[in-house]
Amino acid sequence: MEERLEILARCELFSTLPRKGLEMVASRCVPGEAKKGANVVVEGKAADGLYVVVRGKVDYIKKVEEKRGLVLFRWGPGDVFALNAVMDGKEHYVSAVAATPVKFLKLAAADLRAVCAADPLYEHRILRQTLLIESNRLRQITVRLREFLAKIIK
């Protein structure tokens, strides 16, 4: 449990939660692992939870052709992924593929909702952190978009 708490405390999404909130998240997380090359989440599929990387690397891949994808992000220990789809309840907009053997913690969407419902402060802090995370990702994706636009225009 202590190890799990340490991992979650380093994760940006949960880093501002008070100890009790962190314990609630930790008690509801389920550990999992994936072999190199395995899909952890698949683009177009419904989201059932979010993931925190414990060990290894995960690539966030946007499918651009039948058998080709572009790596938009690479996540490492402490990073959270599949957050977007859990928050808006839609399908995953990218696939998450293990770039190395990966260990992760999974928090089911229903458990995230339960944590948020337990205390408005927990929800507040999780929402604020979500905004920082998604805002940063939006900036990074926009940079990629500019690069593509520049290539096309040139």
Partner: peptide, 24 residues
Amino acid sequence: LRAIVLAFCERVRVTAAKIEGYYK
């Protein structure tokens, strides 16, 4: 904050989809 989060999620999706379009 929930409303802004939902809008951000949508923007990330739309931008990622545009990357696919521009790639093609």
